[in-house]
Nucleic acid binder design. Structure first.
Lengths: 338, 338
DNA sequence: AGCAAGTATGACATCGATGGCATTGCGCTT
DNA sequence: AAGCGCAATGCCATCGATGTCATACTTGCT
């Protein structure tokens, strides 16, 4: 795979020392600003390093210093999805304050690949591993076997595993979406959701359903659509829903991609159904789209914070932080039923 | 900074070997699937590794194998900007095919920080470095001094430096935007642009200006606004433009953030000016926003490809790939002048 | 002048793996 | 029966830095 790569050879500290006419150790001291180096010696070493274009070999240093790196891994879905990139951005900002650097990898929402990435990251000796798991199975993420490399789960609870987690209040958000539409007198409400193997999706639906149950409304049941995994299929699904003999008067889309698809389906309609989407997005204000908003950047920030605390020695039991959601009314969710 | 971090101690290959009752080297051979290991021995070693929860120390391996890692660095603006995250996504997809992993860092669009990041990455012995430079000065990115670590510039030409680059046809796109609006009979055209120290911004403006010159139109000159760095200021700037006694009949926004701001300013206006924005964006179709589109994911992919070719040994002169742009008409850019 | 304390420097082991070479033992050829 | 080839294994050096300890040389003080 990467067998035939050409290695780059850089000058070593030994060469710098030789050029400066001092021992390896003295050169090391000089460049690291350690005490007890004669000013003149220090000058000569720095000059030699400069001449040779010397740069410290961080790999060697890390090995000597205990075999761990200053890297933190993030395993998530594609960064092209603004949810994941916002999370990554939040993580990066937090980590950098502690001199840690972020390595990202895309799990393709596939458990097998995810497992391989975990192995690769652990071999690379990341200080901590942040994961937005792809599915239900988290056994491959078992912390016990990881000898103290802290894991933090984002957006998916680590069922059964004792790991820190930062979650979105998915059920609460789903319930709020349902209540919002009920409050605007909707009863026939469609739900368009992603793969049901994704726990956050199930939680959003469950929350929605609990809101329906609370008022004894069952008129949403014929309109539940799950396993809708991309914007195009969401668009099509919404069109089909609207073509029904008795169409829903409102639609709840359970993530940002699906909301995008729904907006395409509703575009230009004279009398569109109400729409509320989970996840806020850029330009939702301009489009007048009502959403269940939360702060994905904060999600990343908090996860990085938890990870850092562990890395810095915190030893307590697993913690879970829940990020709250709120309905942001912008028009689309307040349209009355037809 | 990261001084007080707690080190994680994992079992070493020596311990695995001891438990299996073989020598270090035999254990190494067994786990790496090298030939000439007795089946029974291999089994014992793998079992011992399993029992101890052994995981190879990639840092040590990398040191032994030549002191370079399998990491590729990306230095860019904040991933929260969809342009950068799309680029990162394209890079990641390409790199993974070659067993390379992406490390991202945010330069805050600040040259000093960028310089520090380059140093940090070179110390970490990345195989290649992809940079979306923050400003004009690229001397800190001089390749000569980097002993063969390939640099690839994205979106900004490496003036004077012999490095590969992948650029967007900014001038062509700016010209196309200008011609598009001229073709719809606009003459008083406003340009809202970001910091003029950013070369791509200048190129977009230059392209636009060349289109104006070609037809002898100078009516845009009073409406040029640069140094507009975020969506909020873009919104305000557009409002001010429209409040002029003789307002422009069309607006060209020179990047995605500014287009966002302009859309907010135009929202709800009875008789909005025409609008064309540089950079495509999600939901532009729903909003009916005409844009100069290009493919940021392809930009990343091509950059990663160039970098990989260097890493794999390619030795030719510096190459430049230009990604083309195209006007996508969606309504906002075709509105006639008032 | 003589000795303790301190400064500047160097020799060597070490982090955890892999490469090269040496060694052992066994089956087979002739 | 001696010798050869090959499989299986082990020993030691090595990658490039840093930590420990030893040593030579000043300096200051009595």
């Amino acid at each position: 795979m990467s067998e035939d790569l050409v290695a780059v050879r850089r000058p070593t500290l030994t060469q710098v020392a030789a050029l400066a006419g001092v021992s390896l150790k003295t050169a090391s001291r000089a460049l690291n600003g350690e005490p007890n180096v004669a000013p003149e010696t220090g000058r000569r070493v720095r000059e030699a390093a400069d001449v040779l274009g010397y740069r410290l070999n961080g790999i060697a240093r890390e090995l000597r210093r205990g075999g761990t790196s200053a890297l933190v891994g993030l395993i998530s879905g594609d960064l092209a999805n603004p949810f994941y990139s916002a999370v990554a951005s939040g993580i990066e900002r937090e980590l950098r304050q502690h001199g840690l650097q972020l390595v990202t990898a895309n799990n393709d929402e596939d458990a097998v690949r995810e497992r391989a990435l975990v192995d690769a990251f652990l071999e690379r000796r990341v200080r901590a591993l942040l994961v937005v798991p792809s599915g239900e199975q988290h056994q491959h993420l078992d912390v016990e076997g990881n000898h103290g490399v802290p894991f933090v789960f984002l957006d998916r609870a680590p069922d059964g595993l004792a790991a820190d987690a930062v979650l979105i209040d998915n059920a609460g958000g789903g319930r709020a979406a349902g209540e919002h539409l009920l409050g605007h007198r909707h009863r026939r409400i469609a739900v368009v959701a992603d793969l049901s193997r994704l726990a956050p999706q199930r939680a959003r639906i469950d929350g929605f359903v609990s809101a329906m149950r609370a008022v004894g409304n069952a008129a949403w049941e014929p309109y539940l659509r799950t396993e809708v995994h991309d914007a195009r299929r969401a668009e099509q699904t919404v069109r089909e829903l609207l073509d029904l003999r008795l169409p829903p008067t409102a639609v709840f889309t359970a993530n940002n991609r699906l909301t995008t698809g729904a907006l395409r389906a509703l575009r230009g309609l004279a009398d569109p159904p109400a729409l509320i989407g989970f996840d806020d997005f850029d330009l939702a204000d301009v489009l007048g789209t009502t959403v269940v908003a939360h702060d994905p950047m904060a999600l990343g920030r908090e996860a990085a914070r938890l990870a850092y605390e562990r890395v810095a020695g915190h030893r307590g039991p697993a913690r879970t932080i829940v990020v709250s959601t709120s309905v942001v009314a912008r028009g689309s969710g307040e349209r009355p039923p037809r």
